[in-house]
Simulated assay, not measured.
Amino acid sequence: MSWATGVMVYIVIWWTVLFAVLPLGVRRVEKPGKGEEHGAPERPELLRKAIITSAVAAVLWLGFYGLHWADVLSFRRLVDGS
């Protein structure tokens, strides 16, 4: 696996994990003011969620890399059908 493939796989894993982490701990605004959406989160805590996402994505990427390195998961076999 080239470094570019590794980076692309990490990015895909990161975005997937982000969408799983975003709804965690969200509380809606009780009484929204003028111009505020009823479903908007009170405190989105995006930095904390980005850090959690990065850590989980790194662990998952390491698992993917280990499977690829051990030749359990190979892109070439998927394409060749071997």
Rank of each mutant, 00 (worst) to 15 (best):
V17C: 07
V17L: 06
I11Q: 02
R48F: 09
A55G: 07
A4H: 14
M1F: 08
M8G: 11
G35C: 03
V26W: 11
V79F: 08
T5V: 09
L24Q: 06
D71I: 08
L78N: 06
I13N: 03
H68L: 11
E45F: 06
V59T: 05
L78E: 07
V29W: 05
W61D: 05
A57P: 00
I11P: 00
G6S: 05
P23R: 07
K34L: 15
L78Y: 11
I51W: 11
P23I: 12
T16D: 02
R27K: 14
Y65H: 05
R48C: 07
W69R: 11
L67K: 01
A57V: 00
V26N: 10
G66P: 05
G35M: 08
I51Y: 01
V26R: 13
L73I: 10
L46G: 06
W14A: 04
I51Q: 05
G81P: 04
L24V: 14
G6V: 01
A20M: 15
Y65V: 08
L24C: 09
I11T: 05
S82E: 13
R77L: 11
V12C: 02
L46M: 12
A40D: 04
M8T: 12
F19V: 10
M8Q: 13
W3A: 08
P23S: 02
W61I: 05
I52L: 07
I13R: 01
I51D: 05
T16C: 07
A50K: 02
E42I: 13
V56S: 02
W61T: 12
V79G: 06
R48D: 11
R28A: 10
S54T: 10
V72R: 07
E36A: 15
T16M: 06
V9A: 08
G66E: 07
G63T: 05
G63I: 13
G35F: 05
E42M: 07
A50P: 01
P32A: 03
P44M: 09
E30A: 15
V79N: 03
V26Y: 11
T5E: 09
F19Y: 14
R28I: 08
Y10P: 00
I52R: 00
I11R: 02
Y10C: 02
L67P: 01
V72D: 09
V9Y: 04
G33Y: 03
G33D: 03
E30Q: 15
G35S: 01
W69Q: 09
D80A: 15
L73R: 00
L60N: 00
A55H: 01
A50E: 10
V56G: 03
A55V: 12
V9I: 10
V7E: 03
L22K: 06
V72P: 04
G25K: 10
W69T: 14
L18M: 09
G25C: 09
F75M: 15
K34R: 13
L60C: 02
R43I: 15
G66H: 10
K34T: 15
H38I: 14
V56H: 00
W61M: 12
D80E: 14
M1L: 11
P32K: 03
P23Q: 06
